[in-house]
Simulated scan of single mutants.
Amino acid sequence: MSDRALHDSANAADEGARSGFSLVAVLVFMLIVSAIVVPFAVTAKTRLMIANSEVEQERLSLLAEGLGNVVASTLTGASGGQKVPLDSTPASCRSGELSFAVRVQDHGGLIDLNAADDSLLELGFAALGFEQQTSEELAKATIRFRDSAKLFVGLPPSRSAVGPAEDKQAPFESVSELQEFPALASIPLRTLNGVFTVNSKRGTVSADRAPSRLRAALASGSSASVVQALADASAYTVDVVVRRDSSGIAGEAGFIIEKSPTGAAFSRVSRSPAAEAGALPPVAGTADCEVLFGTEAARILRGLNS
């Protein structure tokens, strides 16, 4: 082979080597860029999805808030149009992709911590699963906590282990104060609120409006303070959950209301611990949304899906 042919062959080999190296360098560079860019792209997409979910949840929560006001206005209005059970039994309806769950509790079906006597308080603690002796001790500790200055003057300063370290000597302001009792500290607030209240202002409880857990205890016990029906209600807990079926995202709202003495239909007392704890579970069967929320609200809901 001539020198020129050898020279050309060497140049071709060098050029091929340089091309191969360049290709490898480009591939390595692309891998490095991908390693840097892809995580940012994935993170950005994830954040966008989270943001969209948060916006959707906020929209559904606002809708739940508005529907809660509709239910509250119906409950406290002059017409007294009752459209849902008043004993915490959920009701539901559907409009397009949106499904709705509503739960209302008349506080006349709960035991008022400030007005109930010891026998009625015992039934309340029995509804939470306590044995008779513990229920009796808790009832005495509850009365001592709220009324010790008046009811326990001259008595020895003995105190039950189930009661709080100190007595308030004033009415309960919230059911959450029961969690100061060692025996009740681990019971979720939503469970305590399913038995007790501070808003009925009555020393009686209406068995027909009591939640199922409490109704069973009232039926098995005996107390002159248990009545079968109340002519009028002054306070309610209203919980509403809205779900978009296609996304599985839910918004919720809940509050305790009282009939307002100022002329307005109702006033809010506080947020509902049940709503803060989590969404209502889906319920079997659905009613017409017009039955739950009225004709005008049902028309607006249909418009949201059009």
Rank of each mutant, 00 (worst) to 15 (best):
F266T: 12
A141W: 00
Q133D: 15
V55L: 05
E65M: 01
L31V: 11
P273T: 07
A91W: 12
F172H: 04
F266W: 14
G254Q: 08
A298R: 14
S73F: 01
A72C: 08
A235I: 10
E180A: 02
N193V: 08
R268T: 15
Y236R: 05
G20D: 11
V227M: 04
L75C: 09
L155F: 15
E252H: 12
A219L: 12
A149S: 08
L178R: 00
S212D: 07
A116G: 02
F266A: 10
I256S: 07
A224I: 05
G109V: 14
I143L: 12
Q228F: 05
A274F: 05
A127Q: 00
S306E: 11
A101M: 14
K140M: 01
D117Y: 12
F130R: 02
P157T: 15
G294I: 11
L280T: 12
G285Y: 07
F196V: 13
L292H: 02
E177W: 00
L113W: 13
F130C: 02
A253T: 05
C93R: 07
D117L: 08
A207G: 09
A253P: 04
R190N: 10
R299K: 10
T286A: 15
N114P: 09
T76C: 11
D118Y: 02
P39S: 04
T237H: 02
S186M: 03
I50Q: 04
G68A: 09
V227Q: 06
E137K: 00
N114V: 06
A139I: 08
D208H: 07
D147C: 02
Q133F: 15
L27Q: 09
T237N: 03
T76W: 12
R215A: 12
G285S: 08
D106E: 12
A161R: 01
R47L: 11
G203W: 08
D147A: 03
L128G: 00
V26C: 06
G77Y: 05
E54M: 10
T76M: 13
L218A: 01
F196M: 08
V71S: 00
I32G: 14
A127P: 02
A207Y: 12
F40H: 10
L128M: 04
Q169C: 01
A149G: 04
D117I: 08
G154V: 15
Q82C: 08
G81L: 15
K168G: 00
L23N: 10
G194W: 10
L121M: 09
P157G: 13
K168A: 00
E290T: 13
L128Y: 01
D118H: 05
G68H: 03
E166S: 02
K140Y: 01
D239R: 13
E54I: 05
N52I: 03
A5Q: 15
P281M: 00
L128N: 04
I50L: 10
